[in-house]
């Protein structure tokens, strides 16, 4: 479960959140709406502990996010944003490096799952022989999502992930995430493919005031 309790945050003197409280149960969904500059990305980064609130608490699974647990809490989450930058070099080597991280060594690298995910997301198997810089924006976006899916996280924070994709791919990705019933999804998007799905929604407005 994810809770924001009376979170307030100013950024360059502009008030982004004032006493914002939100609750998302495990396996729940939340759609964040709002104009640009209203703090959608910042809200997701608050959950990851990349930004700390001026006042109020961020609580993940009953634990208040703090220095003591932030590195552990991040391991429950996957974060994908728009216009992904991943790095350079061979795609599969990148995945292997991710799996060699100290925190990920207990997760086994399942290549057959990788191959089937590539197929699900309409990337051909040759992608694994390519370098990251050879992938198009849309391919990179899907690749970044696939890596997080391999890690099998509980909570997915998706920041405008579908914005650079064409309609069939948007729907493909939305449907994939919606089929994962046990995952918590927090989505920030302008994209209508995420709308009208009866998600609990918070609207950050147009000029930074939250409702």
């Amino acid at each position: 479960m994810i809770q924001l309790q009376n979170v307030s945050l100013k950024f360059d003197k502009q008030e982004l959140f004032n006493n914002l409280s939100v609750e998302v149960p495990a396996g729940g969904r939340l759609l964040i709406l709002g104009g640009s500059g209203t703090g959608k990305t910042t809200l997701l980064r608050l959950l990851l502990g990349f930004v700390m609130p001026d006042r109020g608490n961020v609580i993940i699974d009953g634990e208040k996010l703090s220095l003591e647990n932030v590195w552990k809490v991040r391991q429950k989450m996957a974060y994908v944003s728009q216009e992904m930058q991943i790095g350079r070099g061979n795609t599969e080597r990148f995945i292997k490096e991710v799996f060699s991280y100290k925190n990920n060594r207990n997760i086994s690298y399942d290549r057959s799952k990788l191959v089937s995910l590539l197929e699900d997301f309409h990337l051909d198997a040759g992608t694994l022989n390519k370098d990251l810089e050879e992938l198009s924006g849309g391919e990179l976006q899907r690749f970044a999502i696939i890596v997080t899916l391999l890690l099998n996280r509980k909570i997915y924070l998706l920041d405008e992930v579908t914005s650079a994709l064409d309609q069939p791919l948007k729907e493909l990705i939305v449907n994939h995430f919606l089929s994962m019933k046990d995952k918590t999804l927090i989505i920030s998007s302008h994209d209508s493919v995420w709308h009208n799905r009866n998600f609990p929604t918070i609207n950050l407005g147009n000029n930074g005031s939250s409702s």
Partner: peptide
């Protein structure tokens, strides 16, 4: 920055 934060979110120290 997105690359760095992405790597952190992938479990990197």
């Amino acid at each position: 920055k997105r690359r760095y934060l992405y790597l952190l979110s992938l479990g990197a120290t």
